[in-house]
Write a protein that binds this DNA or RNA. Structure first.
Length: 271
DNA sequence: ATGGGCACCTGGCTGC
DNA sequence: TGCAGCCAGGTGCCCA
């Protein structure tokens, strides 16, 4: 499911419910997530008090007075705030019960998501340590992207989805940003001009920002903390629009596979 | 270092 | 109706 806008939407939904609350109990119904939950998982969290809910890349960081719960939603994961009285449904794998009487419930049909309870600095965790800059931070600018693309033969779309270059850009927003930048996704990264790199940076920031504003994109599974979908799907120019007319020039939108992922583009608007 | 391919998993849809 | 095949918001790991 989720790319940066969906994770950020989830963060904004759960933060006010979690912050300041104590985790009274952790109920695990399925330990086989992307990484199996270790035996001490529940005990590491039970009794701790949540300080702040932040985000790094597509990871949610639920910081407590005793450590951090690192959450990744994978392809199909979601976190919802529910009443603990609500009976768990299929794929509701983990509950965090709060002293407020509310419950944070993790659902993930495909189990590509993950939960890690860590002590110490979560940013030092092996999964987070080598990540590239946040796309909405000042560190992600034209000079940076242009430099990082030099001598790279990979297609720009695949490079944008590489988390060691920039985080948070997944399959939807990579195609959408390149459409808005007017750059074909199959262009070799190393051949982009400085101006094109600048255009891509602007487009990435704008498309992610606009998606966050409307709660992200719901295609299939994604729901926010209140169980509601995101509305950015209506603003997609190319993603899952193969065979349909470009919303700008009416040319038929094309699709091809790059790195085992579907890519969409307009052959007229993108060069 | 870079790039490519596979693996992990369930569910929904299509077409025979 | 049943079933095989394909596809899906991610990313770690292995190999050349």
């Amino acid at each position: 499911m989720p790319e940066l806008p969906e994770v950020e939407t989830t963060r904004r939904g759960i933060a006010p419910v979690l912050e300041g609350r104590r985790i009274t109990r952790v109920a695990v119904r399925e330990r086989r997530l992307r990484w199996r939950l270790p035996a001490g998982f529940e005990a590491a969290l039970e009794g701790s008090q949540v300080r702040a809910v932040t985000r790094r890349a597509k990871y949610l960081l639920i910081g407590t007075d005793r450590g951090t719960l690192i959450v990744h939603l994978g392809m199909s994961g979601s976190l919802r705030v529910v009443s603990p009285a609500l009976a768990p449904k299929l794929h509701d794998h983990v509950d965090l019960l709060l002293d407020s009487g509310r419950c944070l419930r993790f659902n993930d049909p495909r189990r590509f998501g993950s939960l890690h309870a860590v002590a110490g600095d979560p940013l030092a965790h092996p999964l987070l340590r080598a990540l590239g800059p946040e796309p909405l931070s000042a560190a992600f600018d034209a000079a940076y992207l242009h430099t990082r693309t030099r001598r790279r033969r990979v297609a720009i779309k695949q490079l944008l989805m590489n988390a060691s270059i920039v985080v948070g850009v997944g399959n939807i927003y990579a195609s959408e940003a390149l459409f808005r930048a007017g750059v074909r996704p199959q262009r070799a990264a190393g051949r982009l001009s400085r101006a094109e790199a600048a255009g891509i940076v602007t487009a990435v920031r704008r498309v992610l920002g606009a998606a966050i504003k409307v709660g992200g994109t719901t295609l299939r599974d994604y729901v926010n903390a209140d169980g509601m979908p995101g509305y950015f799907r209506q603003k997609l120019y190319v993603y899952e629009r193969a065979g349909q007319p470009c919303r700008v020039c009416r040319t038929t939108i094309r699709q091809r596979v790059q790195g085992q992922r579907s890519t969409y583009w307009c052959p007229t608007c993108q060069r």
